[in-house]
């Protein structure tokens, strides 16, 4: 999707400043109404997740008997066994599966591998470039930065058609390299995000190291990078989630079983039953496996993520 970027903004700091009630409405019917609205919004957000879980733990063949039951219908782990390729064809079909071979365990590993590689590359190379843009002086710097900015304007599909040909010509189709490479070295967002943070570090900090005789390399790794651990964590999480969700590109270059990522696997699973009744519980078990890792990551870092979403992290 299109990306634009700016400064890492700490919403929390702003919140602290405006704490103390600053003109917030007090009690009254309006406030109760507002809370009712908030609760409704949260319910509308959470219910689909509940439904995903409820269906994933149901017996697919029995779903139609109690389509509105809030709890799993004939609770079973069958759907998970099925999508992980652990169930026999008969067992799968008995519970509403298609019986076709599918291995979400493999896709899960592929997704983790690919997303970790993409995130590592983007954060590391992005930090290097951001430092060069923010704190080093070199001829042509502003021109190159402007060029990078224009990369934000190009819709991904525009570059992905030729990039597909490039991967094909390099003989990389259906390899991890094909999925990772276009995102690995540079993403405008990472560079802008970190550049904005680096710009904000007072020059005295680096100047002190410079006077001690530290060159740019040592100043970057020894002084600047440790200071940026907060924004780097935030960036890494955002990029990981992004890489994890990517569907279009891996669909083009890596649909074969051994390198298939979760999103592509889900698309294929869905297509396995175009007619008749889809294997709903299997499908929901697959989506749950795909959603769980990022949701767990989020559970750990939610405060950090939520507070760093500003036009800061517009993305």
């Amino acid at each position: 999707m299109a990306t634009t970027a700016a400064a890492p903004l700490d919403t929390e700091a702003l919140l602290d400043r405006s704490a103390g009630g600053g003109g917030r409405p007090r009690r009254g019917p309006g406030r109760i109404l507002a809370w009712v609205a908030l609760v409704l919004i949260m319910a509308a957000t959470l219910f689909p997740f509940l439904w995903m879980i409820r269906t994933a733990f149901s017996n697919g063949a029995a779903l139609s008997t109690q389509p509105a039951s809030l709890l799993p219908v004939e609770p079973t782990l069958g759907a998970f066994r099925r999508v992980l390729g652990l169930a026999s064809t008969e067992e799968a079909q008995a519970q509403g599966g298609s019986g076709a071979a599918i291995d979400f365990g493999r896709y899960l590993l592929n997704s983790v591998l690919v997303s970790v590689l993409i995130t590592a590359g983007q954060v590391f190379f992005g930090a290097l470039a951001a430092y060069a843009f923010a704190r080093l002086r070199w001829p042509g710097r502003d021109t190159v930065f402007f060029l990078f900015l224009t990369a934000l304007m190009v819709p991904p599909i525009f570059t992905q058609l030729p990039n597909f040909l490039l991967m094909r010509d390099l003989g990389l189709l259906n390899t991890y390299a094909a999925i990772v490479l276009p995102f690995f070295f540079m993403t405008p967002f990472a560079i802008f995000f970190l550049r904005q943070f680096f710009l904000g570090i007072p020059h005295e900090v680096e100047e002190a190291a410079r006077l001690d005789g530290a060159g740019p390399l040592r100043r970057f790794f020894g002084v600047i990078l440790p200071m940026a651990s907060g924004p780097i964590t935030t960036l890494a999480i955002l990029q990981y989630v992004q890489a994890w969700s990517e569907y279009f590109w891996p669909l083009l270059v890596a649909s074969e079983e051994n390198v298939r990522v979760l999103t592509v696997g889900l698309g294929i699973f869905r297509a396995q039953t175009p007619q008749g009744t889809p294997d709903w519980s299997g499908m929901m078990a697959g989506t749950l496996l795909a959603a769980l890792p990022v949701l767990l990551l989020f559970a750990v870092f939610s405060r950090k993520i939520v507070n760093s979403i500003g036009f800061s992290g517009v993305k």
Binding site: L128, A132, V144, N163, F185, M186, I191
Partner: peptide
């Protein structure tokens, strides 16, 4: 520092 990003930009964007 800029070389990897420049490479990525040249090969996969430009």
């Amino acid at each position: 520092f800029i070389a990897p990003a420049l490479l990525g930009f040249a090969v996969f964007y430009f």
